[in-house]
Design a protein around this nucleic acid. Structure first.
Lengths: 160, 160
DNA sequence: TATTGTTATACTCTATAACTATA
DNA sequence: TATAGTTATAGAGTATAACAATA
């Protein structure tokens, strides 16, 4: 059987060697989706760091700054600025720990909890864009595989 | 039925909200695996950029610097330094295009072709480490899903 | 004037290291 | 002395813009 339209190779197509490389796809795709999310968040005046911090606080346990930083693999010095922004926006509260006055206990405000919902919607929108070519099952399998790999190399990832 | 060892939640566990986020996993994992690769390549005195450039040239078609940069989404100015390193190491050759003397035609040397094999082995080693928790089929499915998503958002990715 | 490769500059992130206040 | 949070500094990585040669 003849091929009426033989594969037209694009002039700037990535080499097969790299397309065959799962790690290359992972790195490229991860960076691209991060950039998209970053852009979307910035339009609303927020950052991805802020979202991840709110997500940590959303788990209910009150946290000290050090544990938040460790959880997110964030530099403690870097976290300060993130919390400053969140506090200014009224999304979190810092209170001195009365037992150990060096520590700050960080907690969500009601406004902060509300904001998580909005941020979650942004993430969902972006993920739906990216994973649109996958059906629900494939997408779930993708997530499961990534989570297993992530949990295997970093114990902070918890898989069910 | 009682649970003898109830789930011990790690103190620095990532919030479920983020673990449930495919894009978060993708970004985190992509960055982690890139760092690992970077480190491994640097031990051999090479960079990931160099590998990707060699991989492009390995496809057989002789390229001009601009097309290489475009393919890899690299800045043209940045590419210069990468090529300098590769040329110094004797892995590539730059020749003036006789038709258009502004252009440089870049091609692999035999040593360069040989080096691709070594670099490929490094990548394989790292991928085997990361994807070790997945069986062959799951891993293939993961790759396929990523490639489809990548091709959907960037036409340079070619899927079979 | 526009384009190729080159070089130089500036900006963003991040990583490191001081600094303070409490313990 | 050691630790939590803060602040300041330095480095890598990247993006932008000027530059010389050729078209």
């Amino acid at each position: 059987m003849t091929v009426p339209f033989p594969e037209v190779k694009q002039p700037d197509a990535l080499p097969e060697e790299l397309c065959a490389c799962t790690s290359f796809l992972l790195a490229r795709l991860g960076y691209a989706i991060k950039l998209s999310a970053l852009e979307a968040f910035e339009e609303e005046g927020f950052s991805l760091y802020q979202y991840s911090v709110l997500a940590v606080l959303g788990e209910g346990t009150r946290e000290t700054q050090a544990t938040i930083a460790d959880t997110l693999k964030l530099d403690r010095g870097q976290l300060v600025g993130v919390l400053d922004g969140l506090e200014e926006a009224g999304l979190i509260e810092r209170r001195r720990d009365q037992v150990d006055r060096r520590r700050h206990t960080v907690s969500l405000t009601p406004a902060g909890r509300k904001q998580i919902g909005k941020m979650r919607a942004i993430v969902k929108r972006i993920e739906d864009q990216y994973f649109e070519p996958l059906d629900a099952e494939t997408r779930a399998n993708l997530h499961d595989a990534l989570l297993r790999v992530a949990a295997n190399q970093d114990s902070r990832f918890q898989h069910s």
